[in-house]
Design a protein around this nucleic acid. Structure first.
Lengths: 203, 203
DNA sequence: CGTTTTTTTGACCCATCAGCAAAAAAAGGG
DNA sequence: CCCTTTTTTTGCTGATGGGTCAAAAAAACG
């Protein structure tokens, strides 16, 4: 009795792929930040007119949130994977090297979208900043817990403060992003990573 | 024969203090970044009308450069002082603690103006970003040289890479700025500093 | 007192911003 | 073939962006 695919297949079909266009939008947000990106930038990159964008994604802010989801899901996968490494040192190494890859990948240099957004948001669109910060805080908590576990397992010395160490590692990751924005080369960033790992606490 | 003070004392005197208004402008730029600051924000904070601003400082960009000079001269003095510390460890300690003070001082939280600007500048006003990056690079060179000297003097181990260590310290400072922007408390940042100093290489 | 020099005032310009309304176009259901 | 549903197209809106001009106002000089 039921038709196949009777969910929303009426009417004129959409002429663009929603996910594909979202990926384009992500790249623009990533390059320019939330406020630095205009609707013209977006529609040009997505090959979409303005009303199409509104119909498909709501408005600029909700488009950004969807792009943020995509970013977390795809580009930040290495952070979730890194947490599974067997030792605190390997966690740090995976995160730092993943960050360098993320930030110097492909052809152009970008910083981390989260850092860019949390730093570059004016008082308007404060809700966007808060959203980004909230997601970052969740990651920070997970990292702190990972270091607490590492201490129990003995691969971090007794005297280290897991939360402090988590803030140090966060700062290194954020610094990688900032320095990438400032034009640091991949070699520069790898030097940062090597020096950071060289002073990492040994059990 | 010569009059006293015959240099530009004719005509209607200015009704505001240029330096004072510049300090107000600096605070606004510091809070909102270069692009995030509008002329309305500036004129409101400086208690000046638009043409007065234009006459006194040129335009938005040249006002920002003057504000940047002031920022470097006053708010970044601790960095120059820190370089004079006798050991690499003390240099790092002075910079990190000074940065926390700088960033959590007075009543409101700010990140570092240099970080904010270098991260939050779109393709327009790229010259501003380049200016900020250029000034940062000079500081980075000085820090690298300081660590090379420290190595010669034996207060850093033989195996450390001065440039890498400089990038690590830079990253920690940038991370402090980013985390302050994200709402970290003074205690949070002091924890970061303590943990950072705890893993600092000993001679 | 009048002239000169400078600042202030208020309005204005043009571009861009995010967002939207109405009509045209394309598909399926009857 | 018409009707409904959905998307596209075109063009618009009100607000805000940085920047500027002409005229009024204020002070110092002769």
């Amino acid at each position: 009795m039921n038709k196949v695919q009777n969910f929303a297949c009426r009417g004129r079909p959409r002429e663009f792929c929603v996910d594909e266009a979202l990926a384009k939008a992500l790249r623009v947000f990533w390059e320019k930040g939330y406020e630095g990106t205009s609707l013209n930038d977006l529609t040009e990159a997505m090959h979409i007119t303005r009303p199409s964008l509104y119909a498909a994604y709501g408005n600029k802010e909700s488009l950004f949130r969807k792009a943020l989801d995509l970013y977390e899901r795809e580009k930040l996968a290495y952070l979730r994977e890194a947490l599974k490494q067997p030792t605190a040192r390997k966690v740090a190494e995976a995160m730092l090297k993943g960050s360098v890859n993320n930030v110097t990948g492909e052809n152009e240099l970008h910083g981390c979208l989260g850092v860019i957004t949390s730093v570059a948001c004016g008082p308007e669109s404060q809700s966007v900043r808060e959203e980004v910060v909230k997601r970052g805080d969740a990651a920070k908590r997970a990292l702190t817990e990972r270091f607490m576990k590492a201490k129990e397992e003995g691969d971090l010395p007794k005297h280290v403060d897991p939360e402090g160490l988590m803030r140090v590692l966060s700062a290194l990751l954020q610094g990688i992003s900032v320095q990438a924005n400032q034009g640091a080369s991949r070699e520069d960033l790898e030097r940062l990573v090597d020096a950071g790992l060289a002073i990492w606490p040994s059990p």
